[in-house]
């Protein structure tokens, strides 16, 4: 167990390092943007004195390293600064949006992950049967269409024709849980269709890959049933690749939702980042980028640790 603990701590340290580098890249990227922020904000009405006042106001008159240190200190304390567009605290602005994004991602994940794993296992179990082929064609088609297309098809069928679900997911902080669930159903379904193929096919491939190994052949020679061979003998050894793909797709559910949120007018982080880019609200864009990066790092870290933890050689050293 000690070695797992050490590996975990090592990965954790690496994750922090990655986040630090990412923050540096984001900050430098924004620094490199041409033009003066204050001039851009004030446009035609800019005079030398108002621009100077604005710069002083935003702290832009200080040197870049100083500003970076201040920004980083703020982030560590959870203070992302103020929005340029409306002067509100960014953390306040983001927290509601972030909750919405997480809610949608969790709903989508709760549908997508068990569904894809089950379908992947079944597809491996009945390899090359009509069931396997149908599942493959279906998931591959749904991933091949652009997200907005899938979203509009779902809107057409489920809200325009059948009228079962709303086409707008306009939730607010005081929307009750079940109504919220009802409203996010279509965007969650869209996301499910988008991420399912990857996870399902990885599960299928990882299991099939193991089916040629000597211990699976041995299991056949022991007269075990097909289900037991796959669930008990193949799956436990297939976790590492599956967990990694699941983590990658979960991250996508959070950082890749921009299009889906725009289509369904869902007030999530994706919407916010699109709006902020349009408004040149750079501190908000920076804050969102850091949050997205952190999501990626945390999920991949979890996948890493899980795939290490499911390795019997590490779990039970000699």
């Amino acid at each position: 167990m000690l070695s797992i603990l050490r590996l975990t701590l090592q990965r954790l340290g690496l994750g922090v390092l990655v986040l630090f580098v990412v923050s540096l890249i984001i900050f430098l990227g924004v620094e490199l943007l041409p033009g003066d922020l204050c001039q851009a904000i004030q446009g035609q009405s800019a005079t030398e004195s108002t621009v100077a006042a604005c710069r002083k106001d935003l702290g832009l008159d200080q040197s870049a390293p100083t500003r970076y240190v201040h920004w980083l200190q703020g982030i560590v304390k959870g203070d992302f600064g103020k929005s340029l567009a409306n002067g509100r605290q960014i953390s306040e602005l983001i927290s509601v949006r972030l909750q919405n994004t997480f809610f949608l991602a969790i709903v989508a994940a709760v549908i997508a992950v068990p569904l894809s794993l089950t379908l992947g296992i079944l597809a491996a179990l009945y390899r090359n049967s009509w069931f396997d082929r149908t599942i493959n064609v279906f998931t591959l088609s749904s991933i091949s269409f652009p997200e907005f297309f899938v979203a509009y098809i779902l809107i057409l069928v489920f809200s325009v024709k059948l009228g079962w679900f709303p086409s707008l997911s306009d939730v607010s902080p005081d929307t009750p849980f079940f109504e919220r669930l009802y409203k996010v159903f279509l965007p969650a379904l869209t996301l499910t269709l988008v991420v399912m193929a990857h996870m399902m096919r990885m599960t299928r491939a990882a299991i099939i890959n193991l089916m040629a190994s000597p211990y699976i052949e041995m299991a056949k020679f022991k007269g075990l049933s097909r289900g037991r061979i796959i669930l008990h003998h193949a799956l436990p050894n297939a976790w590492a690749p599956i967990v990694n793909v699941v983590a990658l797709n979960l991250a996508y559910l959070i950082v890749g939702v921009v299009i889906v949120e725009v289509v369904f007018v869902y007030p999530g982080l994706g919407q916010l980042i699109v709006d902020s880019v349009q408004k040149r609200d750079i501190p908000v864009v920076q804050a969102c980028s850091i949050i997205f990066a952190a999501t990626y790092v945390v999920l991949n870290l979890t996948a890493d640790i899980l795939s290490i933890a499911t390795n019997p050689r590490l779990l039970h050293p000699r």
């Binding site: 000597p214 211990y215 052949e217 041995m218 299991a219 020679f221 022991k222 003998h233 436990p236």
Partner: peptide, 13 residues
Amino acid sequence: YVAQSAAASFNPA
């Protein structure tokens, strides 16, 4: 059946 490579024929998990 008893296989040639026991190390490969036992499930590591």
